[in-house]
Simulated assay, not measured.
Amino acid sequence: MTEATERFFESLPARGPELLGGLADGTLQIDLGIDNLTEHWLVRMRPGSVRVSRERGPADAIWYSSAALFDRLITGEAQGVAAVLRNESTFSGNVVLFLAFRRFFPNPPGTRDPRDVARKSAGRLG
């Protein structure tokens, strides 16, 4: 596994309360494949807390991704929902956990909040 992936998972407990709030309550198993190996991460999301371990279920949902795709997700170069829709990764179980977990991924480089753009435009008009 890459160092970036390790750091990403290590950061989740500290970032969880801010990013998730009360959105998720369950366990997501993330299986990352590289060559003929699969590494497992278990992410337990509860209101106000996230715990991460390097083990398999039981889980309310399972998400499989290649390690290479996951590296692109954690840098904002790829989007999780799009990857599932393109069948680049698979997901089964409680979809709310997947949708909540994607909040940990950064926005694509160069992305701007449309509300900020509108505010700046409105300021120039006034």
Rank of each mutant, 00 (worst) to 15 (best):
I34V: 12
E39D: 13
P106A: 01
T27H: 00
F8N: 04
F91Q: 00
L97V: 11
S53H: 08
G80T: 11
T5C: 11
L42D: 13
F70E: 01
I62Y: 00
L28C: 07
L32D: 12
R54S: 15
S11D: 09
T5Y: 05
R51Q: 15
T90K: 05
A82T: 14
V117R: 00
S49R: 15
F70N: 02
S11V: 02
I62L: 07
F98Q: 07
E77K: 14
V84A: 11
R7T: 12
E88S: 12
T5N: 03
F101D: 00
L73G: 02
R15S: 11
E3Q: 09
R44L: 15
P47D: 12
T111C: 05
E3R: 09
F98C: 00
L42F: 09
A100G: 06
D116S: 09
W41G: 03
A68H: 13
S65P: 10
H40P: 05
R46H: 14
G33K: 13
D25P: 10
R51Y: 11
G21I: 14
E39Q: 08
A118D: 08
F105A: 02
R119H: 03
R54T: 15
G93Y: 01
F8H: 03
L125M: 06
Q79K: 13
A59R: 10
A67F: 10
I74F: 02
G16M: 13
E3G: 14
W63P: 01
R124P: 05
A82Y: 09
R44D: 15
P13I: 01
A118N: 03
P114K: 03
N87Q: 14
A78N: 12
I62P: 00
A14R: 13
A118V: 11
G110R: 06
F105S: 01
H40A: 10
L37A: 11
R46N: 15
T75A: 14
L85D: 11
V52N: 12
W41A: 01
L85M: 13
K120H: 04
S65F: 02
P58Y: 10
S66N: 05
G80D: 03
T2R: 12
A68N: 10
R103F: 00
L32K: 11
L37C: 07
T75V: 15
T38R: 04
V52Q: 13
V95Y: 03
E88P: 02
F8V: 02
D25F: 04
W63T: 02
L20E: 03
S65L: 03
L23T: 12
S92P: 00
S53V: 14
G57N: 13
A100I: 03
L37W: 11
V81Q: 05
A24R: 09
P114T: 05
R102A: 00
A14K: 11
P17V: 12
L69D: 07
A4R: 08
L99C: 00
A83M: 07
R119P: 00
N87T: 08
Q79T: 12
G21K: 09
L20W: 07
R51N: 05
L20V: 15
A4I: 03
L42T: 14
T38D: 09
D25V: 06
A83D: 08
L42A: 11
V117H: 02
D71G: 10
P58R: 14
L69R: 05
R72N: 06
A83S: 12
T90C: 02
